[in-house]
Amino acid sequence: MRLKYPSSIKIVRIPCTGKVDILHILRAFEMGADGVYAVGCMEGDCHYDSGNFRARKRVEQARKILDTIGIGGERVQMYNLSAGEGPLFAKYAVEMHEKILKLGPNPLKLAKKKAA
């Protein structure tokens, strides 16, 4: 297929999105990520039954925390697609990339520069 998606995106491979924890998402922001999105299987198609639903809930909780602390919950997103939907994977990557470009960099980067 050789589809292109933005080089800004770093893929972290996990066995199931059910493995994603709020802490992983928060740590990514602490380490300077501008945005984080989880790509899980289609709802109802999870091999572990409910992994993608767990991920969705954790993404929602991470959103709330990021909103509370002023980083912006909209920087976190959950997507669902099947393993056969390569073009959709690339489309979501572009969508997320553009969304983050609009939102600008992680505010912590600016704060770190100011503090330095």
Binding site: I22, L23, L26, F29, I65, T68, I69, K112
Partner: peptide
């Protein structure tokens, strides 16, 4: 989770 959130909050402030 709390420590991470608080570190980010205070840094942002």
């Amino acid at each position: 989770i709390l420590a991470s959130a608080l570190r980010m909050y205070f840094l942002n402030q």
